[in-house]
């Protein structure tokens, strides 16, 4: 056993449980690890809140105590997010038409829409977990929006051809202008679902929500717009998702700065 293994032995177990015999052997020979293990065994200075402080908290809470209904199950919330997404896309495609489906190959259709669906599902699941403090995150919620965006860029870049296009910016801007209202339409019900939860980190949640709403716009455009040039899809379609994420991020930053650091008053309960 070396010092690195010793770290794993210390990390992976409760401080109360004895170390394995190999770790104890290592401690006899390694002064550095002996010091570390000794320091971790040190008692922590006892902290007792003042009785007055505890009484104030208890009295305040007891005065305003009312029964509350626990939040809906994860599955219900996930279903609400997915239903919002699907309804927004379906409504938009119904209004605009599904011209892209006719011109894309089955491979392009399945992989593009499949990756959009996977990205949407993961973001929705992450948002559900962000609504409840202390939820388990299988993928870091900070990295997920970035990872989802990069994956989509790669899928588009691989599946579609890059070629020179006339009026590239004008066409891309037209798609962005068509996609942004769809994103905004999706954002409203998403916010209604989110507000039931506790948003501990508004910046992170804002970016993820904005990206999810933007992906609704991008998906609708992906089904509607028959322009299969890769740059156009990246800028004109995924640009809606990127703009949505940036807007959500900025709203999150504003909300985070606006969160007051407050001192407890009786009226707060």
């Amino acid at each position: 056993m070396n010092c690195r293994d010793m770290n794993h032995a210390l990390i992976g177990r409760s401080m109360a449980s004895p170390l394995p015999s190999e770790a104890e052997d290592h401690l006899r020979t390694c002064a550095r690890c002996r010091l570390l293990a000794g320091a971790l065994r040190l008692p922590v200075a006892e902290a007792r809140p003042s009785p007055a402080s505890l009484r104030r908290i208890e009295t305040g809470i007891a005065a305003g105590l009312r029964p509350v209904h626990p939040m809906g199950s994860k599955n219900c919330l996930l279903a609400a997010f997915v239903a919002t997404f699907i309804a927004t896309v379906a409504l938009s495609v119904y209004r605009m038409g599904a011209f892209a489906i006719a011109v894309m190959t089955p491979l392009q259709t399945s992989l593009t829409l499949g990756s959009l669906a996977v990205g949407t599902g993961l973001l929705a699941y992450s948002l559900v977990n962000q609504m409840v403090p202390g939820s388990r995150h299988r993928i870091s919620p900070r990295l997920l929006p970035l990872g989802a965006a990069i994956s989509l860029v790669i899928v588009i870049a691989v599946l579609f051809h890059f070629q020179h296009e006339r009026n590239f910016w004008a066409k891309s801007w037209a798609c962005i202008r068509a996609g942004m209202p769809i994103g905004a339409l999706a954002a409203v019900p998403l916010w209604f679902v989110l507000r039931r939860g506790t948003i501990l980190w508004p910046t992170m949640t804002g970016a993820a929500t904005g990206l999810l709403a933007g992906l609704a716009g991008a998906t609708a455009l992906e089904i509607h717009c028959p322009n299969l040039e890769a740059c156009h899809i990246l800028v004109g379609h995924l640009g809606v998702a990127a703009l949505g994420a940036v807007t959500g991020l900025l709203i999150g930053v504003a909300a985070e700065r606006g969160l007051p650091g407050r001192r407890l008053n009786d009226s707060d309960y």
């Binding site: 908290i57 506790t198 407050r262 001192r263 707060d268």
Partner: peptide, 13 residues
């Protein structure tokens, strides 16, 4: 105190 205030507010979660 602030933590308990927050816990009380979001206990439904």
């Amino acid at each position: 105190q602030d933590t308990w205030l927050r816990i009380h507010r979001v206990r439904h979660t």
